[in-house]
Nucleic acid binder design. Structure first.
Lengths: 194, 194, 194, 194
DNA sequence: CATGAATGAGAGTTCATTCAT
DNA sequence: GATGAATGAACTCTCATTCAT
């Protein structure tokens, strides 16, 4: 598959992503993607065998982009607390955005249960926990935070974020609600129990 | 609709519930339910128009049963902390149970966005927040807890639970993980920050 | 499946048979049969799952009809030689008929290799060999024939008939050719080698 | 068309033949052949328009090879009976061989009914009849055989062989069965009826 | 009320065939 | 000549939904 093909594959993924954002995962048919890409019915099958396969590729692309975004944002030398704030802000944006892959991702994982090692979402979650733990430790060291259980706090943060994410899709959450929750979390970080 | 009809409706809902537990929401077809109920294809349409309608009824039934269960469990006079513990234990069971409506409920809310007032899940969530808030306040009063933001804590608890619930469906959570999270929460309740 | 359904099944098989006679086995699609029966696309699937299944049923029906035909023709008391002549005449008719299942049957067996025991065609062949053997023996007894290897002759007859049948489909055979072959066979039966 | 082109055509036919042996005629798609030849999709169309056209060429090639084989085997001076025996042995091999064009050939003639003059199979059949007739006459002359209807016998032999060939594809024939049939035929040749 | 046969729309998938490069 | 991406027609199969009985 040559360079041209790669471009087309990109094109398909870009269009498909929009479809997944619009309709989730399960509702999306090969036909939907064909129509979104303005290619032929058979043409799509030259590149992908199923919506599942396409979605996995979309996810990979997405995570690359997220990584890039972070790297760009962190070229200057921020404090640990700055980074955490940036992370939370980004999460807030994601939670509030109507158009996003969140729902599709959840639906995908409902339908497909990949083994733990290959579970993309799981790895992302665990990575995030580790990073947050590190950040809290650094912030503790610099005196910004005062938290005696960085790992527990990191996990708590991630589960709250997950809770907000899913709640945004089901019962709806306002920006105010998210701010409240973030504030509650931060309070727990700066002034530890004793 | 006569008594017989009501019985039949019950029967359909009972069978349908099993199907939803097994297959989620989106994967369930009218055909699936017809087969599970051992009813005629046309017969089902006499009572329900769509899987959506059936699912809403299943949900109502389910919440009644949950309420009943709570009432039974609380006939004796427990302390506020006892009640909270019972609630968390029940949540833990639900999070860990393979067969349950959790996935179906999420899928349903992905597909249907009812207006806030009619959003069943939302009301349940808010009710739970209020009850937990009350319980924390009572436990504060009795000296069991020491928490200066009962509402914030209640909300935090609920979002963590939501986070655990959805994580159980996507990335998997062990019992140990849930215990950790509950412990982390309780720690925050008994020894307040200052 | 009630009586009505059986009638419909019959109807489908009758129409399907015509299609198989027309187009053989492999060329026939479910769509072809649907159109021939003037039923709906989905309707056919209520009764049959595949062209293969339909064809097997058509074959069963066909063999019943053949049996019935023979029984009718043999109500009077014919001599063994008469019966054999009738059989050969029937075979001749079948070989010459443009519209028949012959081609479809061959194509079916090319595509499906049933285990020996369930091989319908094989059983038919072996039955025919046995019957012809019996007939020759009887005709020997009555002095009509003079054949010292009835089983060998029976097999030879059947293979020649198979050869004529397949040749009719590939290289074409005239009535004269068939007559020639039958005559050759009969000559071998009445005046034995020594 | 240059020499290179001829080579390529040869290459295609060689690969295609394997495919036809494997899958018969109807099941073979242009795609199958493209893949077997490791040629480009469009490339195949430069040489051949359809599987049908390819198959016809494969057949021509095949018959040339068969002819060559015979010539080689008959360089010494064998008796007529020897030649007939060789022919029957070769036929036996062909009937028993799992991998061969037999099925494909039949399928091809089911699908295509060439006019008599161009009917390759028909010409082959008639040639064979004539040759066998000649051989029998020679063997009669030399006293090896005693057969008063060489043409009838030749035709009978050919139809039996056809019958065995098709039976091998449908109901299965063992080597013993073929031997029996050949023996039966030979018996008819050496000791004539009277 | 209840049945289940019937309908037809629509999704998935495969390939012969074309055509720009 | 040669390539292989692209097209679109055709086929299989499944269901929501209707309707005569």
């Amino acid at each position: 598959m040559g360079e041209k093909s790669l471009q087309k594959k990109q094109h398909i993924l870009t269009c498909a992503k929009k479809v997944f954002e619009e309709k989730g995962f399960k509702n999306v048919t090969m036909k939907d993607i064909v129509e979104a890409c303005e290619i032929s019915r058979g043409g799509l099958y030259l590149y992908f065998e199923s919506t599942k396969e396409i979605f996995v590729e979309v996810l990979k692309l997405e995570s690359q982009e997220t990584d890039n975004m972070f790297e760009e944002a962190l070229t200057e030398e921020p404090t640990a607390a700055d980074i955490l704030a940036l992370f939370l802000k980004e999460q807030k944006r994601e939670i509030l955005s109507k158009k996003g892959l969140t729902m599709a991702i959840y639906e995908f994982y409902f339908a497909e249960k990949p083994p733990k090692k290959e579970n993309f979402l799981r790895n992302q979650f665990n990575d995030a926990v580790r990073v947050i733990e590190k950040l809290i430790e650094e912030a503790n060291a610099s005196g910004e935070f005062l938290c005696d259980d960085p790992l527990g706090a990191a996990r708590n943060i991630m589960y709250v974020l997950e809770g907000l994410k899913i709640s945004a899709q089901t019962i709806g959450v306002s920006e105010a609600t998210i701010n409240q929750e973030i504030l509650y979390i931060m309070k727990g970080l700066v002034a530890d129990s004793e």
